[in-house]
């Protein structure tokens, strides 16, 4: 396959944009997995709810910052409720139990949202963000895309700082290295877990808001593809590794975009992410950054 340099750059840009969407969901998933060893599929419901809360707040107040704050608060609370009421009491049960509960919570949230706001997509337009496009060389980039990239990069840097510089961030890293030990050390662990769910859920909520603005619409099943692809991302990254999730997201976004551009006629596009994952697991059963036990 040969592309002109312009096409190549355009595809690369599109791939990176896809990648950051996956990334912002995958980060929360990997944080939860790192601590509790649970595939937190309900995260996709948190993400969808975040998008809808932001949408409704914006419709009422016409203030995008209020929308961000409302989405963050609701998502943080929802995240902690899921953690406290469903995950923590089931830690000693077989792994499929929290997994299936998590899937059920996602389906439930999506359905509740559909009952409240309707099954169909609703347009989400934000006046502060004009839909202009710029042409650099022959590569097209939209103003909303630039904002999108900038905001997500900002959040990821902030997350990086929180995890590496604050006390609770360091504690949560330590806990994810040796959870049983941390559990034995006492109740501070619960705080650390709460903290992870709060941060992860806020990221998901803001992710929902940004993706809603990006595609100019919200719909109840917007979590579907993103959720499963974000899971693919954390599997590729090696489950529980934050760096793995960031790199895995970019790899998946870019690989998918290029594969669809070149082999898109061979297989449906929804299948590529999973095929990439399964082929990778055939050679590295522990993911790219996972440790061999």
């Amino acid at each position: 396959m040969s592309f002109s340099i312009d096409v190549f750059l355009q595809l690369l840009l599109n791939g990176i944009l896809m990648g950051v969407i996956y990334m912002i969901i995958a980060l929360g998933l990997t944080m939860v997995y790192g601590l509790l060893r649970i595939l937190h599929i309900a995260h996709a419901g948190v993400y969808t709810l975040g998008a809808y809360i932001a949408f409704s707040t914006y419709v009422v107040t016409h203030n995008i910052f209020l929308a961000i704050i409302a989405a963050s608060i609701v998502c943080a609370i929802l995240g902690v409720i899921i953690e406290r009421s469903l995950y923590l009491p089931l830690l000693d049960k077989p792994a499929y139990i929290p997994l299936i509960i998590s899937i059920a919570v996602y389906l439930l949230l999506a359905e509740v949202i559909a009952q409240i706001w309707g099954h169909y997509p609703i347009g989400f337009h934000v006046e502060e963000i004009p839909r202009e496009s710029y042409e650099i060389g022959k590569v097209m980039i939209g103003f909303h895309q630039i904002i999108f990239l900038a905001v997500i990069t900002g959040f990821i840097l902030a997350l990086w700082l929180i995890i590496n510089k604050t006390k609770i961030g360091l504690a949560s890293r330590a806990a994810s290295q040796d959870f049983e030990m941390a559990m034995a050390m006492g109740e501070n662990v619960i705080k650390v877990i709460d903290f992870n769910f709060i941060i992860g859920s806020i990221l998901a909520g803001i992710g929902g808001l940004l993706v809603g603005i990006y595609y100019a619409k919200v719909f109840p099943y917007m979590g579907d593809i993103v959720a499963y692809k974000a899971l693919v991302v954390i599997v590729i990254g090696g489950l529980g590794s934050i760096a793995g999730a960031i790199i895995g997201a970019l790899i998946l976004g870019i690989a998918e975009t290029f594969l669809i551009a070149t082999l898109g006629y061979l297989l449906p596009r929804e299948a590529f992410a999973f095929i990439i994952m399964i082929i990778l697991l055939l050679f590295r059963p522990q993911g790219l950054f996972g440790k061999v036990e």
């Binding site: 060893r37 792994a95 693919v232 599997v235 489950l239 994952m277 697991l281 993911g287």
Partner: peptide, 8 residues
Amino acid sequence: KYDFLAMT
């Protein structure tokens, strides 16, 4: 392992 199997 378990979760990788679930995802597959």
